[in-house]
Structure formats: C-alpha cells, structure tokens
C-alpha cells in the first residue's frame, strides 16, 4: 500500500468526527428537542472507521449502497449535512424531499444509492448495479454494506451467489457489530465467523478485519476494490461495535451490553486514528481540535438549515409515484 499523505489522514479524521457529532446531534434532536420525529433512526456511531476506510478506497465513479444505518456513509460520500439533516426532519430540502426519512438517505449525484429498510433487501440491488456496471463495460465497483443480521436471510445467499456466478464487481462488506437488533451473533448464526460464508459461494474471502482501525479497513478495502474491478466479487467481514441501541426504540441497550460497550469504547475508532496522527506528526493537537470545531459548525449549520426549510406539501405527497404520469389518487 502506498504511503498515506497527512492530508488523507486528516480528511479521514474530519469525516469520522463529523459522523460522530452528526449522530450525537440526531439523538439530541430526537430525544430532547423532538425536532426529529418518527419511530426509526439508526445511528452509525462506533462504525466510523469501517465506512471511512472502505469508502476511502473508492473512486467517485464507484457506487455505494447500504441498509438503514446510512447517515454516516452518506456523509463520507460527500452528501451535504444540510440535506441529510433536512431529510431527518422530513423537510422538502432533504435528500429525498422529506419522503424517505432517516432510513432512506440517497444521492444519485454522489453514486450513493441509498439506505434500505428491509433487512437484506438492498443486496440483490447491489448485484443488479454491478451487473449494470459490467454490462456497460465500465470499471466501476459497487460497495455494499451488510449488517451481520442480514447474513441469515435469503437475500444474502441469493445475491452473493448470483454476484459470484456472474463475476460481478461487488465488494461485499459485512459490518459485524455482534448484535442483530437485540440478538447476539452466537444466538443467530451457526458460523459466527461471517467472512467464511464466502466459501459457500466460491467467492474470494478477505477474512475478518479490525473495523475499529481505519488503516486496516482501508488496506483491506483497497485490495478488495482492486480485485473486484479486475476479477469479481469479494467478501470482507469488519468487526466493529455500535455505540447506541439498534435504533431509537432500543432503550435498554446500555443495561444489556454496558460492560461490553465500555471495552469497545476503549478502542474507539476516532481515538485510534487521532493517536496515530499525533504519534506520527508533531504538534497536531491544535489542528485536530480545529477540525472538531469546524465539523461542529457544519452540524450546527445543518440543524439551522433544516429547521428553516419548508415542509413538503400535498403536491409532494402525490409526486413521483410514477415517472411521467400525474397520479390520479382515488
């Protein structure tokens, strides 16, 4: 792997801090000021190194698709915090015009194909996107994030088998945070080393990667992306941990998993990266603090933007049901 530039490390740091602050603010807006409403919101805190390392290996022309824990990946992809926050608040200026919500953040212009809320439902879509990329004879790859919980439903097996069968440029990344909703991995999977599922498909298995360490994620993803671009699909298992409950409805997460959570927080992905930066380069503390202050401003501004944005109206309610046809609602 080529030596990483200081600017790259600082950019990773910026992305990871922005995600953490954004997610913390979302929780605050949901539980305290109630500016974010609804029943679903799944935060990416704890997973930052997985997304930043993996997506850091991509070109702009590559594609990303994920499940409902999607805010962080959208931010990494370069989608504006304003538009994501507006979507969180159901505003017309949101990425999906306020019609998708937290679980359905997408931006076509960033090749970020969305968050999807049916577990595993986006996996064959990723197969199809990769089929399109190959059909059109491009060099694009498709990165798909997969929750550990999704590895046990039929979509996972069908989508990955088809991907291998057709040698499609898919990079499949399992974000194994050890708990699918509330069920631990050992209570849901006969084979808890999830990367080994690749063997069943005849797929290249890049093994289990430390998902707290952005360098290890970047290294594995770079190898995977290069392989997928030239040869075919790859499976990576990133071991990570979620700092919050499954979603906002999960209010007893701390009680159930508190000790384990503390152990994982000791290997916090942002701290690991900060430690690396301050060890490698001198006098970086002030610079890292400045980045934090800058990203906080981005988050503040996003809340301001979203709060002042218009709500969707009744015309929006019936728009985009079909392409090119006014929808005649009964």
């Amino acid at each position: 792997m080529a030596a990483l530039k200081k600017e790259t490390l600082l950019e990773w740091y910026r992305q990871m801090v922005l995600i953490r602050q954004f997610e913390d603010r979302c929780a605050d807006l949901y539980f305290n000021s109630k500016k974010i409403t609804g029943v679903y919101m799944h935060l990416y805190s704890g997973h930052e190194a997985v997304g930043v390392g993996a997506l850091g290996a991509l070109k702009e022309t590559d594609h990303v698709i994920t499940a409902y824990r999607d805010h962080g990946l959208a931010l990494i992809r370069g989608v504006s915090a304003d538009a994501i926050m507006a979507e969180m608040m159901g505003k017309r200026t949101g990425t999906s015009g306020g019609k998708g919500g937290s679980m359905h953040i997408a931006s076509r212009q960033h090749n970020f194909w969305g968050g999807y809320a049916i577990v595993g439902g986006h996996l064959p879509l990723a197969t199809g996107l990769a089929l399109g990329a190959r059909y059109n004879n491009t060099d694009e790859v498709v990165v798909s994030m997969i929750g550990d919980g999704a590895t046990n439903n039929g979509y996972f097996h069908e989508a990955l088998n088809m991907s291998q069968l057709w040698d499609l440029p898919n990079v499949w990344i399992i974000e194994n945070n050890l708990v699918g909703m509330g069920t631990r991995i050992e209570d849901s999977s006969g084979q808890t080393e999830l990367h080994k599922r690749a063997i069943a498909f005849g797929m290249k298995d890049l093994g289990r990667v430390d998902g707290q360490d952005v360098f290890k994620m970047y290294e594995a993803a770079s190898e995977a992306v290069e392989y997928a671009r030239k040869s075919g699909p790859v499976l990576i298992e990133a071991l990570t941990y979620r700092y919050e409950g499954h979603g906002v409805s999960d209010k007893t997460f701390d009680k159930r998993f508190g000790d384990e959570l503390k152990a994982w927080e000791a290997r916090d992905p942002i701290n690991i990266l900060a430690h690396h930066i301050t060890t490698k380069y001198k006098n970086m503390d002030a610079e890292l603090e400045a980045i934090k202050a800058e990203t906080l401003k981005v988050v503040d501004a996003s809340v301001e933007f979203a709060s002042n944005s218009p709500d969707p109206d009744l015309n929006d309610l019936v728009a985009n049901v079909y392409v090119g046809r006014d929808y005649d609602v009964i």
């Binding site: 194909w113 439902g121 996996l123 064959p124 879509l125 990723a126 197969t127 199809g128 996107l129 990769a130 089929l131 399109g132 990329a133 059909y135 059109n136 039929g154 979509y155 069908e158 989508a159 088998n161 088809m162 069968l165 057709w166």
Partner: peptide, 28 residues
C-alpha cells in the same frame, strides 16, 4: 449471454437484481 441471462433458482435475487440493473440504467 450478455443479454440473455440464465439465473439460478433465486426469485428474490432475480427480482432485486433486476431492480438494481434498472436503477443503473438498463431495461431488464
């Protein structure tokens, strides 16, 4: 075979991959 693709018996993936390919810009 590029344009006529035999699939496994995988209806979930046939449906889902067709959706993904259509989103990409093909017309499955």
């Amino acid at each position: 075979p590029r344009r006529v693709k035999d699939t496994p018996i995988s209806e979930m993936a046939i449906g889902g991959a067709a959706v993904g390919a259509a989103m990409y810009g093909l017309r499955p």
